[in-house]
Amino acid sequence: MQSSEATEARQPARSGAARSRAGRGRLEWRTLRLWLAFAWLVVIIGVAVLADVLPFAEARNPGKTLYEPALATPDLASGHPLGTDRHGLDLLGGLAYGARVSLTVGIGATALGCLIGMLIGLTAGFVRGRLDAVVGLLTDSMLAFPPLILLIGAVAVMRPSVLVVTCSLALLTVPSYVRLARAHTLTLVPREFVLQARALGATSSRIVFKELLPNVVWPMLSYSIVVVAAMIVSEASLSYLGLSVQRPNPTWGNMIAAGQDSFQQYPHLVLVPAVAMFLTVLSINAVGEAVRSRELRNAR
């Protein structure tokens, strides 16, 4: 997954001639789409941050919902606008707390992976030699290791929690960040400003942090937007397999897993978290796409 994304990130997007061929109406739709994506992201982030303050019905402690209706169908007029699950837990509240987990893991894992990967990649690309070879060997080994086995193992060693899942997913993103950062560094090292700094007697660490880092950060960040979306999907998949945060603490993935067997009778158990996740990932992808095409335009 990571490697293919990295490959895609290296792909040049459409050329200028192609862009001018796009119609005017298309541009407006693109803008509208982008704004809608932003709006959804603002809502979902807001809800995730404010979940404790907002007046949701109980969504996490089934001990408090013994007398709530179980498996209530969505009804906007009731106290449970999106319905309840088997244990009487509110699905709207579940969405909010699930968003918190998804976003924490998605952003946390990406940030951590990006930071570690970038530093290693920068150093390896700058120092070269034996260190570079060792780093190359390690990243290749990490990429060859089946990611699910690593995740299952990590979760089995330490009990599944947001922190464990974030760290293990971060570990999985490290190799592609290392490669990306190293590749960028290699193109920068022979450039004039680096040579100049070297000629002026700057120390290696100064060159890495003052000269190279600022130039490597931006491409990393734009790639990171897509990675956040991928991490949210990965977290949901882990939750779905029962390898992330455990019920009754809601995540989008574990809500879907718990509801899938009764899809026929109670489709809302699956559809509510599924739609939320789909819209979130779609929005992040849309923003990522916009950022990338803007970047390409600037580059030209």
Binding site: N61, P62, G63, K64, T65, L66, R86, H87, G242, R247, P248, A257, A258, D261
Partner: peptide, 15 residues
């Protein structure tokens, strides 16, 4: 899956 529901329900009742 069935025992997962059971565990949650037991936790709730004891809580």
């Amino acid at each position: 899956p069935s025992n997962q529901e059971a565990a949650i329900a037991l936790k709730a009742l004891l809580y």
